[in-house]
């Protein structure tokens, strides 16, 4: 059945599978530089998928979205993160993954869960939409899992941005993108967020001497 699909849709499916793969790579990587590279690849593939969808459906405004994604998620944010990490002298740092087997097991079950949720909705009956929706939901949930399981600020930011990738991919696959004005607004917000995250790295480092956010535990409800 899959081989009967037009070649572009097959390419879209292959790319979505690779996007999901980069999400797993993000979860498992322990070197900071590799994490940033994996994130850049994910952004590039989301942009490429968007361009393919634009070609397949003939919706020209999607080319602009594809370009924005490529510029922001594949080039600017990875470049910014890379620069910050170099300035902070963390280039060779290892962000050890705690409980790697456990994390992978949870990640796999999250993907299965997403397919389970997407399966019964009849509007997704096209093979390609059902797969891409399930994958975009998986990317969102894996991004959250990364936010929870990591305790270094840089990895958390990458998890957050990868979550945004998932959201964008969901919008592309379910509805062929959002109205242009909304997409521009979202891109602007992501841009500002990336810059503010960069500012925060320096604040956290200056106050805590490292980017280990597990040290952020002064504010809590427990009685002193």
């Amino acid at each position: 059945m899959l081989t009967q699909l037009p070649i572009y849709q097959q390419a879209i499916l292959t790319l979505s599978a690779m996007i999901l793969f980069t999400s797993f790579a993000l979860l498992a990587q322990s070197r900071v530089v590799s994490i940033i590279h994996a994130f850049a690849w994910q952004g590039a593939m989301v942009a490429l998928t968007t361009a393919l969808v634009a070609y397949d459906t003939g919706l020209h405004h999607l080319y602009i979205s594809a370009f924005l994604t490529l510029a922001l998620k594949a080039l600017f944010i990875p470049w910014l993160l890379h620069r910050l990490v170099r300035q902070l002298g963390l280039l060779r740092e290892l962000h050890t993954v705690e409980h790697p087997v456990m994390t992978m097991m949870i990640a796999t079950s999250l993907v299965i869960f997403c397919y389970y949720v997407a399966q019964p909705i009849e509007q997704f009956s096209e093979t390609i939409t059902r797969n891409t929706i399930a994958i975009s939901m998986s990317v969102i949930l894996l991004g959250m899992l990364m936010l929870i399981s990591r305790n270094k600020a840089v990895s958390q930011v990458v998890g957050f941005m990868s979550l945004e990738n998932g959201l964008f991919f969901a919008a592309i696959s379910a509805t062929h993108g959002m109205p242009m004005v909304v997409e521009l607004g979202i891109a602007f917000d992501v841009l500002i967020a990336a810059v503010i995250f960069g500012v925060f790295f320096f604040h956290i480092r200056d106050s805590f001497d490292s980017l280990d956010v597990s040290q952020l535990h002064r504010l809590s409800e427990s009685d002193e």
Partner: peptide, 25 residues
């Protein structure tokens, strides 16, 4: 820029950021 303020801001950013991402979905 006190350690407590940085911690509060980081929490605010991450929790509201993830929360508002759900709203976008």
């Amino acid at each position: 820029r006190t350690p407590e303020a940085i911690e509060a801001a980081w929490k605010y950013f991450i929790i509201c950021g993830v929360g508002i991402a759900q709203a976008l979905f």
